[in-house]
């Protein structure tokens, strides 16, 4: 691991002081008239300590070496990520120094259910860090250990299924499965990935659905049974089959896509800055150091896939369409 270094007592004070001096004097790294000449603020619409936090740190650790300035994350959880976006769009200066690090899956789904105060096209996603399919999993000690167990149990009672939030691709995947099997699942929003994993492990719910990256990070305490997309992670997801293969369906992949976003106005006003961002983003993606950092933060190597402005726009639209289709079920209307 390249970033890791061992510090003993003698060097601690020196390093501590250096680190402090560096933190305090970062604006001192001014390079006149070049972009960027100061740190970026990154608006992350979820809580710290989650999957977005891990991915952001891995990616920015590489990206910052190319840009010569640091990325300062600000976490704005609340109302399913809505608060973070509203604050980013409403309060952050559109100058290419303020970026968004969001999730194209669940967060765009919000707009389909309840439109934001800003125009949906007023921001775009420009760089995908990674994408992972959602999956269905049980706790290691759950009495339900196979899809057949789940199917049998769902005939006798309505099963409770943990999900991070109602407006989430994983919830849509489960509802589609329920449609196909002709059973009714009861979605329980457990407010975030941590709660969703904990719910399945401790038996608060019968099983859970979530983005598979967080499920892999949970290790042995859970077992994956089905993937709402292609299982490119294989063993890490217990070789669970894809929903389309297992049940002969043709559901689009239910993805959680972590990507950097930016104000459309910033692109219009500062096209040269945006060019620097997209170029260095792509370069960082190709840097072997990224894979190293990504794996170090428990990322699944197969999920680290680049995508740019066009692909992300297509995915954003797909989420809006799915949201419109399942609106009634997800809002309780």
């Amino acid at each position: 691991m390249s970033m890791k270094q061992t510090i003993n007592r003698r060097t601690l004070l020196g390093t501590g002081a250096a680190a402090a001096a560096l933190t305090l004097a970062t604006p001192g790294l001014v390079r006149a008239n070049t972009f960027p000449d100061r740190n970026f603020s990154v608006y992350i619409p979820t809580a710290e300590g989650g999957g977005a936090d891990r991915n952001f740190r891995a990616f920015s650790s590489v990206w910052k070496t190319r840009l010569g300035v640091d990325f300062e994350p600000g976490f704005y959880p609340g109302a399913s990520g809505r608060v973070g976006y509203e604050i980013y769009m409403g309060k952050a200066e559109p100058d290419c120094y303020n970026l968004l690090f969001g999730n194209v899956g669940p967060e765009v789904l919000n707009w389909a259910l309840q439109p934001p105060t800003f125009g949906i096209d007023d921001y775009i996603y420009f760089g995908q860090v990674d994408k992972d399919p959602c999956c269905l999993f049980v706790g290691a000690e759950s009495p339900l250990q196979t899809m057949d167990d789940i199917f049998a149990a769902s005939k006798t009672r309505k099963l409770n299924v943990g999900t991070s939030r109602m407006a989430h691709p994983a919830s849509i995947g489960l509802l589609a499965l329920g449609d196909k099997l002709g059973v009714d699942f009861n979605l329980i929003p457990l407010q975030g990935g941590k709660g969703t994993v904990a719910g399945a492990v401790t038996g608060e719910v019968d099983f859970s659905v979530l983005t598979s990256g967080s499920v892999i990070a949970a290790g042995d305490s859970v077992k994956t049974l089905l993937v709402f997309g292609n299982n490119i992670a294989g063993e890490a997801l217990d070789n669970a089959p894809s929903i389309n293969d297992a049940y002969g369906m043709d559901l689009p992949e239910m993805l959680s896509t972590r990507a950097f976003g930016i104000h459309q106005k910033a692109i219009d006003d500062f096209p040269d800055r945006f060019e620097v961002l997209t170029r260095t983003f792509k370069e960082s993606h190709e840097d072997p150091a990224l894979m190293e950092a990504y794996i170090a933060t428990k990322g699944q190597p197969e999920y680290l896939v680049y995508a740019g402005v066009e692909e992300l726009a297509v995915e954003k639209q797909a989420m809006l369409d799915l949201g419109a289709e399942y609106k009634a079920l997800l809002t309780g209307a």
């Binding site: 691991m1 710290e48 300590g49 989650g50 891990r54 941590k194 990070a217 042995d220 305490s221 428990k298």
Partner: peptide
């Protein structure tokens, strides 16, 4: 949760 992030950075996996 933050401890988890830091520990995972160092390659420690929690759990059973």
């Amino acid at each position: 949760a933050i401890m988890l992030v830091v520990m995972q950075f160092h390659g420690v996996s929690f759990g059973p």
